[in-house]
Nucleic acid binder design. Structure first.
Lengths: 262, 262
DNA sequence: CTCAATTTGAGCGATAATGAGCGAAAATGA
DNA sequence: TCATTTTCGCTCATTATCGCTCAAATTGAG
């Protein structure tokens, strides 16, 4: 049986059942598992099916662009669980009447969602998703900084390379940021260079700069460097933080909260 | 039975009964409890179900305060149907490569959602909800103007009384706005006075200012006046527009599209 | 026919899925 | 409340599948 015949067969069965198994197809087409495997790879490459262990399934309905269910706080894996624990600790630091800045990222979304009951809170942010968490809270005054929309996996943020003049005259009791990576040599790094200007400026506009770092951030380098790791700030992370970072922060005298992972 | 078959079975039964038991599924699929347990974990991780002792339940959709599901495009009544028709006509006016401004409101949300496939579109807006509709379209450059967050029934917008300096240097091919009310004496009126400055400025920054007016807007007065009704602009509305408005616009030589309500 | 390119099949260690067993925790019922 | 039963979470051994490479078979061109 030639490969186009096999492909036709596979697609037919796939259409009918929603999924087919490797052994099933091998039996029907008479081809070896190696060949069937290659067929499956091919079909996946064409986007006609999706490979699974032991078989193929119909490609999941693609959500329309822009219509994606915006949910930047859902816990999907262990790293998300870490983020949630970190967000809780960060939220515990915020008190009524304070003015804070919130960065963009999933941890920050979770963090924002935990602030709803704090009285007379003033929040400034570049995160559209964080705004969604707080928009309807009458006790919280939310200001969204403007700029071009950039979309990450779990967040939407605004980026404005000339943002600094907008911030003039503000002072924050606390600033909460996440980054894409931390590295002892390169420091805190982010993917978009337009963020570095804002974040660096923010570090000068507060006495309490919190970095929220889950364990996926350590020893990773993103494109643009913001500031060196010894820059004075407070770190909230989990016990998964590698020893060399723990030691480094301790040596620098930087307050470093390591939360247990329940 | 492979795991995708089990998943299909489980989801099917879950949909039908609202809950399934572990032993039940084990019997049906022929898999061991260990495997079924893992399946359940997987489904919970995907957010498709919620684990309980001895089984699975449908995830309860809880509406936390502030976490209200932001859906600014849902059609709930006849007025919404009008808005949808108006939005479609407005979207038909937009061409590839243009730069447009979108205001805040349900009609504008619907309008934004219809722009996703237009190539090389530049969108500037104060509507956070409109941004959500367009954020993930790579063909569209979206800029969100900053400001304080204000929440309406069907939208979230930013308001900045000093916005005008940010707009300096921009020019829009078309500007699409809605208002809270139109009145032949008072003109276009909105609830928040901070919007009038921006909207008045916008009317000077384009040659094509479209007003999107459903029939609930006529003969209503909101708090703040923006500009008089004879101010040059194009109107998109439905045949429900009262005759005196039709006559007025015609006398003023203002282009006025009256759409049939299907 | 020869030779190269493509397609297929087989073997290999690595990886993922599965099933069974065990102590701990939770639900059940007196 | 306490004892019993069920379920849970976890680990470990087993099995199936995966990804890969290399050899054999098939195909097509000169």
């Amino acid at each position: 049986m030639r490969y186009w015949e096999r492909e036709k067969q596979v697609l037919h069965l796939l259409e009918a059942n929603g999924a087919v198994s490797m052994t099933e197809i091998c039996a029907i087409t008479g081809a070896s598992v190696a060949t069937t495997r290659r067929d499956f790879d091919e079909l996946q490459k064409k986007g006609l099916a999706q490979r699974t262990h032991g078989g193929l399934r119909l490609p999941q309905k693609k959500e329309e662009p822009g219509r994606r269910y915006v949910n930047g706080t859902e816990i999907l894996d262990d790293i998300d669980r870490e983020k949630q624990i970190i967000a809780r600790e960060a939220a515990a630091q915020v008190q009524a009447g304070e003015s804070i800045f919130i960065g963009a990222g999933k941890t920050c979304n979770m963090f924002a969602a935990l602030l709803r009951d704090i009285e007379r809170l003033t929040v400034v942010t570049t995160s559209v998703t964080a705004v969604l968490e707080l928009a309807e809270c009458p006790n919280i005054s939310v200001t969204l900084l403007g700029g071009d929309i950039h979309t990450g996996k779990n967040y939407i943020e605004t980026l404005d390379p000339d943002i600094n003049h907008t911030l003039r005259g503000y002072f924050f009791d606390k600033v909460f940021l996440t980054v894409e990576g931390v590295d002892l040599e390169r420091g805190y790094t982010v993917q978009d260079k337009n963020r570095t200007g804002l974040y660096t400026q923010l570090s000068r506009m507060t006495r309490r700069l919190y970095m929220l770092l889950d364990s996926a951030k350590f020893d990773r380098r993103a494109f643009a460097t913001m500031f060196p790791p010894e820059k004075a700030c407070r770190v909230i992370s989990t016990r998964n933080m590698p020893d060399k970072f723990v030691e480094f922060y301790r040596k620098q005298g930087i307050s470093c909260t390591l939360l247990p992972i329940e």
